[in-house]
Simulated assay, not measured.
Amino acid sequence: MTWSRRLFLTIALIAFQSVSAEWGEGWDPVDPPIPTGKADKVEVVEFFWYGCPHCFDLEPAMEKWTEKLPANVEFRLIPAPLNPRWTVHSQFFYAAEALGVLDQLHKPLFDAMHKKRRKLYTKQALIDFAVEQGIDRKAFTDAWNSFGVHVKVQQARKLGQRFALDGVPAVGINGKYKTSGSLAGTYTKMFKIMDELVAKEQATLKP
């Protein structure tokens, strides 16, 4: 091997190691980091889609994990509208949130789609479903069509883009890291990574 090729390979290896050092095992950095606006809390966000079977399967474990979070960790669900088909479910989520009935609709929609195999993929079908759960049709439709819900859906779309998501479920930690079952290898390892990254970010909080 010539000295020039040896030098080239050495430089390439150093460069690769430098880049690799920025990544953890089972998570990726978010570059640039996304400000959360919360200096005294660590923000954890879960991106999901109601039609995703993996999101449905993960929900019980995620609920159990969130129940143990300390006061300085804030958890949010983000109904990621990563493509046009998913947008109606994002609108459903934020309409329910705007009316204060998300607890009444969130789990039933998951169950309807994955346990009962109902095809709830259109605005009309989702509004009808909300009515089945006892929600006033006009109130829910008005919330769905409201400017506030439109803004929330656009914010969710942009946040997914900034996290460079390629699928769900995925978890963002304090706007700096993302992990998922595919990145971590297993959901058990994903939760371990989440614990480690949350603890790391807790150490940076202002008192």
Rank of each mutant, 00 (worst) to 15 (best):
Q155A: 11
Q133V: 13
R117N: 14
C52W: 00
F163R: 01
S180L: 03
G175Q: 02
Y121Q: 08
W144C: 05
T186G: 03
A15P: 03
T2H: 12
P79V: 03
E74C: 02
M190A: 11
S20W: 14
D103V: 08
I127S: 01
L126M: 10
R157H: 04
L205P: 05
E25C: 00
A199T: 09
W86K: 01
Q104F: 09
L105Y: 15
K158D: 15
D166W: 12
W3E: 05
P35D: 07
K176V: 00
P79K: 02
K107D: 15
M190L: 13
I78D: 02
N72K: 03
H114L: 01
H106Y: 15
E67M: 05
P207T: 15
E63Q: 03
R85C: 04
D31W: 04
I34C: 04
S180D: 12
T188V: 15
E22I: 12
L77I: 14
Q133I: 08
V30D: 03
P84Y: 10
F129A: 07
D111A: 07
I78F: 02
A61F: 07
K138E: 15
G37C: 09
L183P: 10
N174R: 08
V198Y: 11
I135D: 09
E22Y: 10
L165D: 07
P169N: 02
I14W: 06
L58T: 07
R76F: 11
K123S: 13
G26T: 02
Y187N: 09
V149T: 06
T36S: 05
A125L: 14
K152M: 11
E67C: 04
V73F: 02
I34S: 00
G26I: 03
D166A: 13
A96F: 12
L183G: 12
W86M: 04
K38L: 13
E97N: 10
T179M: 11
P169K: 01
P70T: 09
T188P: 06
A15D: 04
Q133P: 08
N72C: 04
R85K: 11
Q202D: 02
I14E: 07
D40E: 11
E22Q: 09
A12I: 15
A156D: 05
W144N: 05
H150F: 14
F47A: 00
W49R: 01
R5N: 10
G185K: 03
K189L: 05
S90I: 13
G172N: 10
S146C: 08
A203P: 03
T36K: 08
R162A: 14
R6K: 08
P35V: 08
P108T: 15
K123Y: 15
L69I: 08
Y94K: 02
K64D: 06
F47L: 00
Q154C: 07
A184F: 06
A21D: 03
D103C: 01
K178S: 07
R117K: 12
H114D: 09
S146I: 14
R117V: 13
H54K: 00
D111Q: 09
Y94H: 09
F56K: 00
L126D: 14
N174Y: 14
A15E: 11
L105D: 04
W23K: 02
K192F: 10
G172Y: 13
R162M: 14
P60W: 12
